[in-house]
């Protein structure tokens, strides 16, 4: 009976660790996605207003601008 409880506790903590690791990976993936979105808007989108206002920054950061 005691062994059983221990086994259950062990499985539970494993599940929790796995969940934490998965949450970490989600966080990392979210960070990369946010980074990509910001970078595309500031550096690469060709829409007129974005291009004009970000113009000097794009040249100064050596993005291919126009």
């Amino acid at each position: 009976m005691k062994k059983n409880a221990q086994a259950i506790a062990a499985t539970q903590s494993q599940t929790q660790a796995k969940a934490a690791a998965n949450a970490d990976l989600m966080g990392i993936a979210g960070a990369v996605l946010l980074g990509l979105t910001l970078l595309f808007a500031a550096g690469f989108a060709q829409a007129g207003i974005l291009h004009d206002t970000a113009h000097d920054m794009r040249h100064a950061m050596s993005f291919p601008c126009h």
């Binding site: 910001l38 970078l39 000097d56």
Partner: peptide, 25 residues
């Protein structure tokens, strides 16, 4: 014009920072 440059520079470096911090993790 230069206020825009400062703003977009902050956005771009925040994007770089997200990649770098994902690398840290």
């Amino acid at each position: 014009r230069h206020i825009y440059t400062i703003g977009f520079s902050a956005v771009t470096f925040t994007a770089y920072a997200f990649f770098m911090v994902a690398g840290f993790a």
